[in-house]
Design a protein around this nucleic acid. Sequence first.
DNA 1: AAAAAGAGCAACCGCGGCATC
DNA 2: AGATGCCGCGGTTGCTCTTTT
Length: 334
Amino acid sequence: MGRAPCCDKTKVKRGPWSPEEDAKLRDYIEKYGNGGNWISLPLKAGLRRCGKSCRLRWLNYLRPNIKHGDFSEEEDRIIFSLFAAVGSRWSIIAAHLPGRTDNDIKNYWNTKLRKKIMSSSSSSSSHSSAAMATPFLNPNSHDVKRPITPSATIAPFSYNPYVENSTTSLISNINGFEADDQQIFPFFNPNYPHDFSLEDMSSNNNNNISGTSGFLLNHSMCDHYSNHTNFSSDVNGKRSEIMMKQEEMMMIDHHIDQMTKGYNGDFTQGYYNNDINGHGDLKQMISGTGTNSNINMGGSGSGSASSSSFISNLAENKTSSSLLKHKCLPYFYS
DNA sequence: AAAAAGAGCAACCGCGGCATC
DNA sequence: AGATGCCGCGGTTGCTCTTTT
């Protein structure tokens, strides 16, 4: 048996709202709120509308501080960034854009931004936000792959984040997205497209970072991070909580994956913060129980001796359960 | 000027999640 | 533990306005 309809559709008005209906709804909610029950609201407010329709009208149009009209370039960048991180979860994206509704953003994406991406990807390999977002698009459809659900709902190592190879690590999953073509791709921040340029990656000459684990990336990418002196203050400061959370999930998953393969040594992910990179035990860093002996520079980073203590301090001083609250940038290398 | 096509967007629909009984 | 009801979300529809032919 299916769900009972929320209202009798033959007895409620449908279609566009009249100014009178808007006024009734606005007046009622401003006086009494929705009372925690949208279904009974129309009757109390004297409206011949379905409760769901009232809710939608209020949330998308009538409530205070709703912003209508053109989106700014800054808003575009935020949308690109968040879309890359969370996919078509419009409510999450809307939460980062004060005054914008999920419906607005969804419509804007479908009518404008998606086209912008398509045209950018076909016309150039520029560093524009749109161009940088294209690796997440499935060329065979209009859709973007949804992000991998965090490990709360998917077994942490149920996806294979990398394919080991003697010289390069190919990835099938980066930044929480499935990639149609396995390719090396860095964490993505459209606010700073230059920091993640594939061209830069390939033009850099790196031989000073090597490690024992292989998630991604090629060496030049690591070097690119390490040599970017303003990286921490500029880029990390702009990374959204959502992006950081996803990165953290990937780090944890990767760590678990490593352990299932029997790796028990120094944890071989690197963290970059204020020109520091190092190796450490991720679990201990997250739990804040790390010590200098557990979190150390490893043998191949480009930092200095002081980096080791800095990283352990980072772990010891942390106040929340999220490593990334400290604005560390994870990277993975082979 | 009129018809057709395209674009934009408000509103609807149905499903999943959650709370309550 | 299962049924029920509501909320919130994302996908889709269809109306209106604009542009093109």
